[in-house]
Design a protein around this nucleic acid. Structure first.
Lengths: 227, 227
DNA sequence: GTCTATAATATGATAGAC
DNA sequence: GTCTATCATATTATAGAC
């Protein structure tokens, strides 16, 4: 976040291993890994794993190829770490609502959170999409049960709402999928949305209009209200 | 479709170039190209272009690598042809409804057509998805204006319906995107849907349930009906 | 048209100096 | 930790016999 002071310039100071310099080193290492992973995410998400070379990542991260392979033993391992980090970003907002909330409000809010995620983390969304589209060779070993658990919790909440008459009797699974699909669409199919409308979620007005439209469609449907 | 008789065995019959054998040859060539393109679609859609080697395609199509490159000058060109063929499949069902139809019926029907497309052409859907997610380097030169034209025509129809009070006042663009997103989701995110529900559109009951759910959500919304 | 080399390159990864 | 070779391999594509 803060600007890096100068770039470390000294050779190793002959075994000066105070805990202070140690932690500095560790932090520097962590930071560099972070930079590399960010570059990797950029490229993986727009060219795929196989469409991205280690050298490209190294260039974007401004390290040498050899140096990158010092921090990550192989391209595969780098990819795995990027995917793992991605899941953290991904699973949090899914843990949204509970049955005490007002369903309409909760769903509207959930749509907003997910759409904001598409706006703020489009690369993560696209990489996730690519992984899943390709059968998620890597992803679903790890993702499988936590995802099912989260979904089942939500399904339960939705079922409760329906039983209480607070929601129309729709299949909870498909409702969840519909929300995911519609919101992620604006990140994953961004170029198509742009080709058709000339707009993207980066434009606050378009974001607001999109949010309102999705909320209206899912909550009220398109059938005209009989007055 | 029909079983291949034996495999052609004769050497070239020393310049026998009747129009009959000519057309046979042309058809054979066309057929072989088709087989190769099918194999290519299979692999491209699940591994991406860069994740697929010419050799893999050749193996799946049961031709030699050299032979494949006799029919398609390069992997790139093969890919381009696959994508082009894909667009034919893709754009047809988009030309659905016109303003004389009943909007509710037309939209319900459009959802069904699109969901059936996800069931019957999942590989095309996924390859299209991958292309778009990656920024559609190839696709949007060709797709750009025809797509916009189709969408604009539909937007017009929807606007007419809204003006006539036959549809709630929702943004036509986002309605179209919502239908695309929700229906394509079951092809593109198939492994995720399976991971969560254990089902896919191949199961007729799941198809029916999915169709009904999407139609209900988009037409009626999830808000409970006040009696 | 189909095959057997084989060229030409790109790319992942390592060895070893500093 | 970082660099300069360099290896090893995979892969696209071509040349030329049949």
């Amino acid at each position: 976040m803060s600007s890096t002071p100068a770039k470390k310039s000294l050779k190793k100071s002959t075994r000066e291993s105070s805990s202070k310099t140690q932690s500095k080193r560790i932090e520097a290492k962590r930071n560099k890994r972070k930079i590399i992973m960010q570059a990797a995410l950029d490229l993986f998400s727009s060219n795929g794993v196989h469409g991205t070379s280690v050298e490209q990542i190294a260039d974007l991260a401004k390290v040498s190829k050899t140096n990158l392979l010092y921090y990550f033993a192989s391209k595969e391992l780098l990819y795995v770490e990027v995917i793992q980090q991605l899941l953290d970003v991904w699973l949090v907002p899914l843990k949204g609502f509970n049955s005490e909330q007002d369903p309409i409000e909760a769903i509207a809010n959930y749509i907003e959170v997910k759409l904001a995620l598409s706006r703020d983390n489009p690369k993560e969304s696209r990489l996730f999409c690519m992984e899943v589209v390709q059968g998620a060779p890597l992803l679903f070993n790890q993702l499988g049960s936590p995802l099912r658990a989260i979904v089942e919790a939500k399904v339960q909440v939705i079922s409760d709402w329906i039983k209480a008459g607070k929601l129309a009797p729709i299949d909870p699974y498909h409702l969840i999928f519909s929300i995911w699909a519609t919101t992620q669409h604006y990140a994953d199919f961004r170029v198509q949305v742009e080709a058709v409308t000339g707009q993207s979620l980066d434009n606050p007005e378009f974001f607001a209009a999109t949010l309102h439209s999705i909320q209206t469609i899912i909550l009220n449907g398109v059938r005209p209200q009989h007055s």
